[in-house]
């Protein structure tokens, strides 16, 4: 994947065009995970526009909780959650994952609702 291709690769997976972004920051202001992210969604968009491949290594894409607030509020109509998913999917399809069953504390495993496990593994495990 050459540098300028990241935006079109993302488009292929998500149907979303990062070049529509006008950098208003509404997504960042609304984002659930922003305090835990290295770069918030607005910056993720800018990195995609610049073809910066470091975007694939951000913590942000794994901290996203797919809450769709950004998607609901983007004045440019970008489905940012789909874009974040595309960044995860590129990693996951190469076996790069962040949620490993063995590392979940057993006390938590015995208590969490099953849906947390299914959704967590679907989003964060290869």
């Amino acid at each position: 994947m050459v540098q300028q291709d990241i935006a079109s690769y993302i488009y292929q997976i998500s149907g979303q065009n990062p070049f529509l972004c006008m950098q208003c920051g509404t997504c960042t202001a609304s984002c659930t995970g922003r305090e835990a992210m290295d770069f918030p969604p607005r910056t993720v968009m800018r990195m995609l526009q610049m073809g910066n491949l470091a975007v694939l290594d951000l913590k942000s894409i794994w901290v996203c909780s797919t809450c769709l607030i950004c998607t609901a509020r983007c004045p440019r109509g970008i489905d940012i959650a789909r874009l974040m998913e595309a960044l995860r999917v590129i990693n996951l399809r190469r076996g790069r994952e962040v949620l490993v069953a063995e590392k979940i504390p057993p006390e938590l495993l015995l208590k969490v609702p099953q849906m947390a496990l299914t959704s967590g593994f679907r989003k964060l495990s290869a």
């Binding site: 659930t32 995970g33 305090e35 835990a36 794994w62 901290v63 909780s65 797919t66 809450c67 607030i69 962040v98 949620l99 979940i104 938590l108 969490v112 947390a116 496990l117 959704s119 967590g120 989003k123 964060l124």
Partner: peptide, 19 residues
């Protein structure tokens, strides 16, 4: 309509605590 952090409870429980 804020998010509670969802499945991040398994990955970043500090985020969920903050939410």
């Amino acid at each position: 309509t804020a998010c509670c952090g969802s499945y991040q409870i398994l990955h970043d429980s500090g985020l969920v605590k903050q939410k």
